[in-house]
Amino acid sequence: MPWTIFDTWIAVTGMLCAMSAASIGSFLVLRKMSMMGDAISHAVLPGLALAFFFTGARDSFPMFIGAAVAGILTALFTQWISRFGQVDRGAAMGIVFTTLFAIGLLLIVRAADHVDLDPGCVLYGAIELTPLDMVKVGLFELPRAAVVNGTMLLINLGVIKLLFKELRLSSFDPGLADTLGFSPGFLHYLLMTMVAITTVAAFESVGSIIVIAMLIVPAATALLLTRRLVPMLAIACAVGATSAWLGHYMAIRIPPLFGISDTTSSGMMAFAVGLLFTVAWIFAPDEGLVARARRRRGGNGAPKMPDTSTADAVAE
């Protein structure tokens, strides 16, 4: 299948989505909260479902409200259960998001008679359909999903730029941040809200589950290549963007090798970012497997130092 303008739009939408997720997701990874991203993207489902119930349409704005609320509730409930119930944090997260997801599923099935919402669409999006929904922005005609994700990217970058010092400090040294008066609670819940909203912005394109790949993996890849924050953010966005193009390309080129026309681009985008991570894992200058093997071999038989597997990126 030749590459058409539709494919370009799909790739562009995916790229904007990936970059907005990668930027905000970097802070999740730095705070050792990657699984929270997973929890939130599952937990936004009831928020979306309720928004559908009340507005009866796939209108963007109420969904963002519903998602933001769901994101905050997830973080809140996890905190409560973990603190007042003295439950292990991961377990608390699991309880909260699976329950919210179950509620969301029930709501969606109930609402399915009234609203045209396919749960599969929520989970892995329908990015292939996005070029069919164009809007006019100034002089240009763009897919609506691209506009939504582009706006999300700008918002995320704006928040990061505005709160850069606070975010950086509280991610690397929460104790000091607290002493200096940057409210850690506020930043935490703000981050969770941004993740939730980013997830919803993505749900029409790559779906709310696959966005987890974009939240975590680009940042993880960047961590293998640098220890400084600004390069990490830049690399994460670049990796995210590349994987969008690569993923869509693979989605239309690989299935024909098996006699099938094409497949879900969003899935392939997640797989693509995994491939990029693997390349970095193997070939990264200091951290990669090849580099480590070379160090070990050139060690003159000296005993190998135990691996300090800490993701202690140093603040710039």
Partner: peptide, 23 residues
Amino acid sequence: TTRLRDDVAMGFVLSVFFGLGVA
């Protein structure tokens, strides 16, 4: 083999495998 922690490794496998599965 890397300095990435538990949660990142878990998130990686989860999301990439799921994406591949969807594809």
